[in-house]
Structures are given as C-alpha cells and as structure tokens.
C-alpha cells in the first residue's frame, strides 16, 4: 500500500475540483470548445484517480519496472505529449481551412467587383 498524507489528498482534491470548475465555466462562457474540454476533464479525472487511489501508480510502476516518482513523471510527460500532438493536428487542420477560406474570399471579392463593374456599364 502506498500512503499519501491527508493534507496532500485534500490539496489534490481541491485542485481537481478547481480544474473541473474552471473548465465548466469556460465552456459556459463559450470560450472553450466541448471537443477540447474532454481532454481537460480527462486530465482532472486522472489526477483525481491518482489522488484517491495512489496504488494505481504503483501498479503501473511495477509493470514498467520504474520508481513510482519516475513513473509519475513518465505518465505526466506522455499525457502532455499527447495533448500537444492533438493541438498540432488541430492547428494544421485550421491552417488548411483558413487557407481555403482566404482563397474563397479573394475569389468572391473578385467576382463581386466584376459584377459591380458590369452593372455600372
């Protein structure tokens, strides 16, 4: 069994609730897309799981044969890596769409000016 001091558990608990609260508030204010909120809610959930059930970390540690602190860093690092990759994918997609949009806008503006020119003549 792995023991975590009570005050640490309280801090982790508060952290999780704060994170969930902030996410829900951001969604409510329309500043965060639900699509991305899922990632952050999962983050809060995993912190929560490690908080109330520290042995889950030990299980993973035993599986990968590492010290539990190293495991913690590894899990956190992989998680952040996944998030960053996800964001880069999202940005790439946005870039492509933005590109098409600028081209469509330029095209429509051109057509509009042509039509205006024809009306005047």
């Amino acid at each position: 069994m792995m023991e975590i001091a009570t005050h640490l558990r309280v801090i982790i608990g508060i952290l999780c609730f704060a994170l969930v609260g902030i996410i829900i508030e951001l969604i409510r204010q329309n500043r965060l897309k639900e699509h991305y909120a899922i990632i952050w809610l999962l983050t809060a959930l995993s912190i929560f799981i490690f908080g109330i059930w520290p042995d889950s970390l030990n299980l993973i540690s035993r599986f990968v044969r590492l010290h539990h602190l190293t495991t913690l860093f590894m899990v956190a690092f992989l998680f952040l890596l996944a998030i960053v990759l996800h964001f880069t994918l999202a940005i790439s997609q946005l870039f492509d769409r933005n590109k098409r949009l600028t081209q469509e806008v330029a095209w429509l503006k051109f057509e509009l000016e042509q039509m205006k020119g024809q009306e005047q003549n």
């Binding site: 600028t102 503006k109 051109f110």
Partner: peptide, 17 residues
C-alpha cells in the same frame, strides 16, 4: 485583373489561388 487575399498567406497560397 486583381484578386486580393485578405492577409499575407505566402506565395504558395497566392499561386494556388
């Protein structure tokens, strides 16, 4: 004839337009 992109997008995007 002139087609204007709303902001600078790089030569590739311009040529593709």
């Amino acid at each position: 004839m002139v087609m204007s992109l709303p902001y600078n997008m790089g030569i590739g995007t311009a040529v593709q337009s």
